[in-house]
Design a protein around this nucleic acid. Structure first.
Length: 209
DNA sequence: CGTTGGATTGGCT
DNA sequence: GCCAATCCAACGC
């Protein structure tokens, strides 16, 4: 279970909507004292600066500044008062775009992940953006890490053939999600998150124009 | 300055 | 299905 070469920065320095589906099947790795943590990415979402749902939409702040930096950095944010979520920064430097890692299939270090998560069920270890962060021990300290050159957290190319077809839906927890169907997941994979795609906010009885 | 609600999860009705 | 947990960024006054 080696995995391929590390993903080059050129792969990530493209629009998030192009990178997100291609990250499916790639391996997320974290160096750890006892062995390593490794999981295969099965669900992602793209975020762009032009997108009202993106943290970068309203410009640069101390919270989102990593999103505007070079591609290949880890953007970790804190939300709901208790959870962290991680993104891979994409696009050109100065642009605020990234891909949210939403779910992965745990492959190595399941014992450590289980300790971090407080459960043994492999399907509950990395099947959600906050679960994935918790399993990998990713928090504030990891914000800004370079996954291209770094030795702590990095990405490896996936297996030759991603067997499962890629399914595209609207993103989870986003208003008017149908406008930007930027969630990508491996169809039928048991390790995707349970998040339901966002629906468009509609006025009942209205027919739009 | 006060209020609101979120790129979530887990537990309970 | 509903809601609390629990912080903090964004926005309104």
């Amino acid at each position: 279970m080696a995995g391929g070469a590390r993903l080059p920065r050129s792969f990530l320095a493209r629009p998030s909507v192009a990178v997100a589906p291609e990250l499916l099947g790639c391996l997320l790795v974290r160096a750890a004292p006892r062995g390593r943590l490794l999981a295969r990415i099965v669900e992602t979402e793209a975020y762009e600066e032009s997108d009202p749902a993106s943290h970068s939409y309203r410009g640069r702040t101390s919270r989102n500044e990593v999103m505007f930096g070079p591609a290949g950095c880890l953007y970790v944010y804190f939300t709901y008062g208790m959870h962290f979520c991680m993104n891979i920064v994409t696009g050109r430097e100065g642009e605020g775009s990234a891909v949210l890692l939403r779910a992965a299939e745990p492959l190595e270090g399941l014992d450590s992940m289980a300790r971090h998560r407080g459960t043994d069920d492999p399907r509950l270890l990395c099947s959600g953006p906050a679960r994935l962060c918790q399993a990998f021990g990713v928090g504030r300290r990891e914000n800004g890490l370079d996954v291209v050159r770094g030795r702590d957290v990095f990405l490896l190319a996936g297996e030759p053939a991603p067997c499962s077809p890629v399914r595209v839906t609207s993103r989870v927890g986003i208003r008017n999600g149908g406008e930007r169907p930027w969630r990508f997941l491996l169809e039928g994979d048991p390790f995707v998150s349970g998040g339901r795609p966002a629906r468009d906010r509609g006025v009942r009885g209205s027919r739009g124009s």
